[in-house]
Simulated scan of single mutants.
Amino acid sequence: MSSDPEDDYVPWIQQFCESFGHDYFVPVAQEFIEDDFNLTGLSLQVPYYREALYTILDYQVETSEDAPTTNAGNGLRSGSGKRSDLPNKLLLSHSAELLYGLIHARYIISKPGLTAMASKFERSEFGICPRYYCDGMHLIPVGATDIPGQETVRLYCPCCSDIYLPLSSRYLNIDGAFFGTTFPGLLVKMFPEIENQCKLRINKVNQDNFGIRLFGFKIHESSATGPRMKWLRQYPALEEERREYAECELELPPANDGGVDMSVSEASEIEPDFDDDRTMASEGI
């Protein structure tokens, strides 16, 4: 590997990062891409995989527009002078972007990739959490699924454990699979200081002052307008709570006898939720 990090990736990768958002992507080292072990299984997801890989590595790739005109009996499309086994430039560009995005998702969960993304996290290049009590906690890019073409990239806050859309519309065309579902959790576990930052922010919040009030009285948590998100900012303090938290990470907690038991008939009588922002004031009541 070259001592200069600028020599570890090719110009095509730089152009990709600049066009899609250099704030989100980190350049993947060329030696990572050239290792076939890191690319296992990607040939089944990307059309024209070999041509796309050569494009990423900045090799000369022949397209259907560049192919010479010959007869149709030598593997050519009948009635035209273009080979049917070669992609056109537009399809090749799309395949190369898809392949590099999937490689990027694997690279950022490696040690050098995590280190590079941690530097972006420290500089708050992914933005900050909009919640007041998160106190400007830095966000982490995440994908809702590892399958490309389903969801765009989201931003995860390790403090409130919620997910947000990017503020800039420039990043709404980035596929979430280019970051994957594994990266945020691995980054937090790889750098424990992120969890410490979250705990410091949570400990600064006075739980008695959290939530809205009516005439000075706190609204009960069981109310529809109560502080339902309060549990997101609660960390186990006692040893018993820590054991319960550790068990819940692996399996569902045991049923609570004091909880509300609703039968099927009662559940069916509940009116469905409607996504309506109107209030009774607009209806003249």
Rank of each mutant, 00 (worst) to 15 (best):
Y164T: 06
Y164V: 02
P166F: 07
P166V: 08
P166R: 07
S168A: 09
S169H: 05
R170Y: 08
Y171R: 05
Y171D: 03
L172V: 04
L172R: 09
I174V: 15
I174Y: 01
I174C: 08
I174P: 00
D175M: 06
D175T: 02
D175L: 07
D175I: 06
A177T: 00
A177Q: 02
F178C: 14
F178N: 08
F179T: 06
F179R: 06
F179M: 07
G180N: 07
T181N: 02
T181Q: 13
T181I: 12
F183Q: 02
F183V: 04
F183S: 05
F183W: 03
F183G: 07
P184N: 03
G185M: 03
G185H: 11
G185P: 02
G185Y: 11
L186W: 00
L187A: 13
L187E: 06
V188K: 06
V188R: 10
V188N: 05
V188D: 03
V188P: 05
M190C: 10
M190H: 11
M190P: 01
F191N: 14
F191W: 08
F191H: 12
P192T: 11
E193L: 12
E193T: 13
E193S: 14
I194H: 12
E195M: 12
N196H: 14
N196L: 15
N196Y: 13
N196V: 11
Q197H: 13
C198Y: 02
